[in-house]
């Protein structure tokens, strides 16, 4: 996991190029070191341009996606769509022969309920695990745990979906007596398990980035370990922890395959944790393939894509503002 704080990266003098650094070690003319030195002279601009292209291409890709999504949804966005119905109706009937209705209220409720509950589960567990890893565990235990947690992040989401369907579902029925096992609770548990590795690694990094002098000072003042964690480390690592949580939330909102299988895919506003729901992402995944290109249903699905886009964008923006706010305060 890369360090996240920009501050922790040592500053190199930017005007010194690799070639100049290498020239210090360049050997005699004709020697093997000289050869590699020449090679570097020649390849540096190439590498530089390749890297620059990589950077620019990501901007290009984002713009292209923007363009594509908005182009496909354009007709709907510019008047064809009944916005009031879109946001206030809980009736999603894209293929009804009687009356088609495109209301996403139930889908929004599904996305938010699952995301909220999964955050409630994953944040305490993730932060707890991070604190244990960075402050309490040591040696082999720590290494093992870290590897296992990284492994958790490597499980494909469709596999999580299977686990939800085959294992968690029946267990939920057995414990709660719910009529159906694929529901808000199931989806939230799976999403929480999926976002915990992200939360753990990012927040563990930021906790470790807190200088040891803070811990020593806290110990010297007679603070217990819990007090050190709660009163010293958490405030010091605030921005990193917040970033960890928001990355986790982002993962939860954007996840598709696992929630498609775990939530039951039912269009309704949930009234309890054991109600099945349907999320925005799952709706797009399940229905886009069936639609006729350019048809109403197709375009509305792209509008849903834009709504999702707006949600994640505002979360990122919020995160950015929050982190800045936290930084601003701590600089005072």
């Amino acid at each position: 996991m890369p360090r996240c704080q920009r501050r922790s990266i040592p500053k190199l003098p930017t005007h010194v190029s690799v070639t100049q650094l290498m020239s210090a070690t360049k050997g005699q003319r004709g020697g093997i070191r000289y050869f590699f030195g020449r090679l570097l002279d020649w390849s540096e601009p190439l590498v530089e341009w390749t890297i620059r292209l990589c950077g620019w291409s990501s901007i290009l890709f984002v713009l292209a996606i923007f363009f594509f999504v908005f182009r496909e949804a354009w007709e709907m966005l510019t008047g064809k769509l009944d916005w009031v119905e879109f946001f206030t109706s809980a009736e999603w009937r894209p293929d009804s022969d009687v009356q088609t209705k495109y209301g996403i209220l139930a889908l929004l409720a599904g996305t938010f309920s699952v995301t909220l509950l999964s955050t409630l589960i994953s944040v305490p567990l993730g932060l707890g695990a991070a604190v244990y890893l960075s402050e309490f565990a040591s040696g082999r235990v720590k290494e093992t745990l870290k590897i296992v947690i990284e492994l958790l992040a490597a499980i494909p989401s469709i596999v999580w979906g299977f686990v939800a369907f085959m294992v968690i579902g029946p267990v939920i029925i057995w414990i709660t007596g719910a009529p159906i096992g694929v529901n808000v609770l199931n989806g939230s548990i799976v999403l929480a398990l999926m976002s915990i590795p992200i939360i753990v690694s990012v927040s563990e990094d930021s906790l470790r980035a807190v200088p040891d002098s803070y811990r020593e000072a806290a110990l010297a003042m007679g603070a217990s370990r819990w007090e050190t964690v709660y009163r010293v480390l958490f405030p010091a690592a605030k921005s990193g922890l917040l970033a960890a949580v928001l990355l986790g939330v982002g993962r939860a909102i954007g996840e598709t395959m696992a929630v498609l299988m775990a939530t039951g895919h039912a269009v309704q506003i949930p009234s309890s944790l054991t109600d099945s729901v349907r999320t925005l992402t799952a709706t797009i995944a399940a229905e886009l393939g069936e639609t006729i290109r350019g048809g109403d249903h197709y375009q509305v699905l792209f509008v849903i894509g834009i709504v999702l886009f707006a949600i994640t964008l505002s979360i990122n923006l919020l995160a950015d503002l929050a982190v800045r706010g936290v930084r601003g305060q701590s600089n005072d």
Binding site: D97, V98, H265, A266, V267, Q268, R278, A286
Partner: peptide
């Protein structure tokens, strides 16, 4: 032909 399915069913793919 005139009645719709009730929403809230578990729609499997």
């Amino acid at each position: 032909d005139d009645r719709q399915l009730k929403l809230g069913s578990n729609d499997q793919s």
